[in-house]
Simulated scan of single mutants.
Amino acid sequence: MVLAKTTLFDTELQEAASFFKALGHPARLQILRYLSETKMCITGDISEELPLSRTTVNQHLAELKKAGLIQGHVSGKNTNYCLDPEKIKTLKMVSDAFLSTLEPDDFKCGG
């Protein structure tokens, strides 16, 4: 059985990579921003807010759900989408922790 290469890295880096992968497309960032700005769950078609097809938006929503950043609850024919506040807090902590390890003042490149 082949091991995933990600298992060779510590859990903090794996968690950060999972979040950063989910944030790796501007449409996903726009979805998160939209859900944050509305301050409530959105019922219906988020694709009306983006210049993308419904199918494409649904694929981006699925990636955000997979990372746990949003929740989607089916209600009749519609799905209610919300940010997951606890995961957003975790995202902030993980991002801050990772970025704090990168000290740009200490960078020295040839020259």
Rank of each mutant, 00 (worst) to 15 (best):
F19M: 04
D84A: 05
L99R: 10
L13D: 08
S95P: 00
P85I: 04
E103L: 05
P104K: 13
R33P: 00
L99F: 14
T6I: 14
T38G: 00
L102W: 11
I42N: 05
G44P: 02
E63A: 05
L8W: 03
L3K: 14
T7C: 00
F20Q: 09
Q30W: 02
E48C: 01
H25R: 12
F98Y: 12
F9L: 14
R54E: 05
A67L: 08
R54H: 03
D105Y: 07
S53D: 04
G76M: 02
A16D: 01
T101E: 09
C41W: 09
E49R: 15
K108A: 10
V74G: 00
E37L: 11
K21F: 12
M1Q: 11
H25V: 03
S18V: 02
S95G: 03
A27M: 13
G72P: 07
S100Q: 13
H60E: 14
E63K: 12
L3G: 01
L23I: 11
L99I: 14
L3T: 11
Q71P: 00
H73G: 00
G24P: 11
T38M: 09
Y81F: 15
A67W: 09
Y34L: 15
L69Y: 08
A16H: 07
A97H: 13
I46Q: 01
F98R: 04
V74I: 11
L64D: 11
I70C: 01
A22L: 07
L69D: 06
P51E: 11
F98A: 10
V57S: 01
Q14T: 02
R54W: 02
K39R: 12
T56M: 03
F98W: 06
A4V: 01
P104T: 14
D10L: 02
A4N: 10
K89R: 15
A97S: 14
N78G: 01
H25F: 11
S100M: 07
H60M: 05
V74L: 07
E48D: 09
L69C: 04
Y81H: 15
T79H: 02
A17R: 05
N58Y: 04
K87C: 10
E48I: 09
E63G: 00
G72D: 11
N78W: 03
V57F: 04
E12W: 03
H25T: 05
Q14A: 03
K92N: 10
L50V: 08
M40I: 02
L50Q: 07
M1K: 14
D84M: 01
E49T: 06
Y81I: 06
G44T: 13
T11K: 13
E63F: 00
L29E: 10
Q71F: 04
N80R: 15
A67V: 04
Q30E: 15
P26Q: 12
I88F: 06
T38A: 10
A62I: 08
S47I: 02
